[in-house]
Design a protein around this nucleic acid. Structure first.
Lengths: 250, 250
DNA sequence: AAAGGTCTTTGACCGCGGTCAATGTTCTGT
DNA sequence: ACAGAACATTGACCGCGGTCAAAGACCTTT
């Protein structure tokens, strides 16, 4: 059940910022950060929020690309699949990131929630019109898209040319960085512990490996004392430098 | 020797379109297609042309991203490399395509000519200002960037999950499509012959394989009668459907 | 035409990572 | 607390594609 209904009926009355943008967790990071409170209220008139459960799909590859928007909380995956069912996660979406593609008729990739998530959605057509009116937002979208392109191209190198060991080590470093605030560390610069938002199977889909290979490489890193696996989906990075070294050399 | 000097000294005098844009081969396809003749003349004032030889590099990964522009003729490659020298071609640039990245300080990838090429270059900073003034051009750049992102993500699936056979077959189909006018065909719908602009080594760099594997797969396709290799860098596609089938299934 | 380079093909070998299968662990709902 | 499902680990095996090496084709240059 979404919370779209919570949107107030009279959003742009007076100077006050309409709910729920006023308390939005990504107000300062999403594309909306380019908008004044008034502009934001206008944009909000065409948007609505949606809560998603783990595993729920927002867009299916091949369907009309009907919505786009900002991720508020949780993590989404972008999945490419071949006709015979092989899958590859081609992107991860974090809070503050933009999801979907304006100016594109058909969605090329399936977008699914990896965790519970909350998104702020806009129908594509009116959102494109909003880009016309808010030049700074379009500019930021261009910059974000250029960044995403660089990220995707960097991952092409890794997918094609890195060993399984390098891929897994690199992935753990990425996730550690992402974990940020939610990670915890007993001693400054000491071991860092955090939860992975992905299953082994999903990690395999990101890295272009199989579940078994991911699992074996994790075990190898554990045996080498580079990481620890306290149980559940938690990981502890015991020796960041060693992990870095393994991420860079075969 | 570039032809930058050929740029006329008084480009925006009168209504006539300044050389060399008037006869530009990609006038109707490049970002400039969004500009009126007058606007184009203004933009041309900050740009210049450059001819490149096979193997010549336009931008080095890690250097300041100083220029961007449009490719007029030839083919360029975008190369990602790891610290220990492994390489991956993450993009090919064809005539009419945009090269370089506005709003990005450091070039992430090395840009090198695969064939003789001609580019129309702009220093990055004034080009960014031109994007401010010409909204339609910025819009088109955004659309092109979104397309490029989709292409890159599609190739992530292929790099990670396709067999060598599928990669080579798919690559040949792509190149056949690109060859377009320069390809020749004795009978309508009959065998199609064209020249690859890439060496076996470069094809390997595109597909995430080795030279030897690319060569072996080409031979396999030849022995199966799907393609012919008349010599030099030429390829003949004898049975397009069979090639398509091999591109899609392992 | 000969010489030298680069690019390509082919062969022999082997190791990484995929596949198949069984067991162990963690999460979920009642 | 228990049952069942989903997820993770581990082992045995093997094939695809990488590596090393040599020979052949093609393209310059003089």
């Amino acid at each position: 059940m979404g919370v779209g209904n919570c949107r107030p009926l009279f959003y742009n009355v007076g100077m006050e910022l309409a709910e729920p943008c006023a308390h939005c967790a990504v107000r300062d990071r999403a594309l909306c950060s380019t908008l004044s409170d008034d502009e934001l209220a206008q944009l909000n008139a065409i948007g609505h929020r949606r809560e998603m459960e783990r595993g729920e799909t927002l867009l299916w590859a091949g369907d009309d690309s009907v919505v786009c928007g900002n991720l508020i909380s949780g993590v989404l995956k972008l999945v490419a699949a071949s006709a015979d069912g092989r899958e590859q996660i081609v992107g991860l979406v974090y809070p503050g990131d933009f999801v979907g593609q304006p100016y594109v008729e058909k969605a090329e990739f399936t977008v699914t929630a990896l965790t519970e998530a909350e998104v702020c959605l806009f129908p594509r057509a009116p959102f494109e019109r909003a880009l016309d009116d808010h030049h700074a937002m379009e500019r930021l979208l261009l910059q974000r898209t250029l960044q995403a392109l660089n990220t995707a191209r960097g991952r092409m190198l890794s997918l094609a040319r890195s060993s399984a060991q390098e891929k897994v080590a690199g992935f753990l470093l990425d996730m550690a960085e992402r974990a940020g605030t939610s990670a915890c560390r007993a001693v400054p610069d000491g071991p860092l512990t955090f939860d992975l938002p992905l299953t082994r199977g999903q990690i395999a889909d990101v890295l272009g490996l199989t579940i078994e290979t991911v699992s074996r490489q994790m075990t190898r890193l554990k045996v080498a004392g580079v990481i620890a696996l306290p149980g559940g989906r938690a990981v502890t990075i015991c020796d960041r430098d060693a992990l870095q070294a393994r991420a860079e050399a075969a």
